[in-house]
């Protein structure tokens, strides 16, 4: 009991302190987080890769956060890519929509969400997930009928 109270008090203070980052290297796809989490366009497998490329462009340009979906299924909210801290409709993140990349950076966690500040995109493998073969385009109207 003598040690329990100070320990509990220090635990209470934790949310008020600044988060501490951890350096990580992650390989995964730059995704549209709203469509992925909300299910508004369908299941998670349908809102990644080529099927969702155009919608991912729309959402990224529209200022919706982009995420890095790691191979183990973890999603990291991307807050900065190299020198570009424009995480709301930024040019760098737009250029990487649906691309699979390996990123090196700092990882932060707060209240159940994961965040990454990417210091360097080590490799950009472009789009490697041809999901249109299974799902068509998601949403279907993202690929307009040719005139």
């Amino acid at each position: 009991m003598r040690y329990a109270l100070p320990l509990l008090l220090s635990s209470l203070a934790l949310p008020a302190t600044a988060a501490e980052g951890t350096r990580i290297q992650v390989t995964g796809e730059i995704i549209d987080t709203w469509c992925y989490y909300s299910g508004v366009m369908g299941g998670p497998d349908a809102v990644v890769g080529s099927a969702h490329h155009t919608c991912a462009l729309w959402c990224s340009a529209g200022g919706i956060p982009v995420g890095l979906l790691a191979e183990d299924g973890t999603v990291y909210m991307v807050l900065k890519i190299a020198q570009d801290a424009t995480s709301a409709s930024g040019d760098t993140q737009l250029s990487l929509a649906a691309h699979t990349v390996t990123a090196d950076g700092m990882f932060y966690e707060r209240d159940g969400l994961n965040y990454i500040v990417v210091s360097e995109v080590i490799s950009d493998m472009d789009i490697v997930n041809p999901t249109h073969e299974d799902y068509g385009t998601v949403p279907p109207f993202s690929f307009p009928e040719p005139e």
Binding site: M77, K80, A85, A88
Partner: peptide, 21 residues
């Protein structure tokens, strides 16, 4: 500003709409 909150990188005015909030 989320980036400011987590990493201490804090521009004026939460980044003027360029950063996730």
């Amino acid at each position: 500003d989320v980036l400011c909150e987590l990493s201490g990188d804090c521009p004026d005015n939460c980044g003027d709409g360029a950063r996730q909030l």
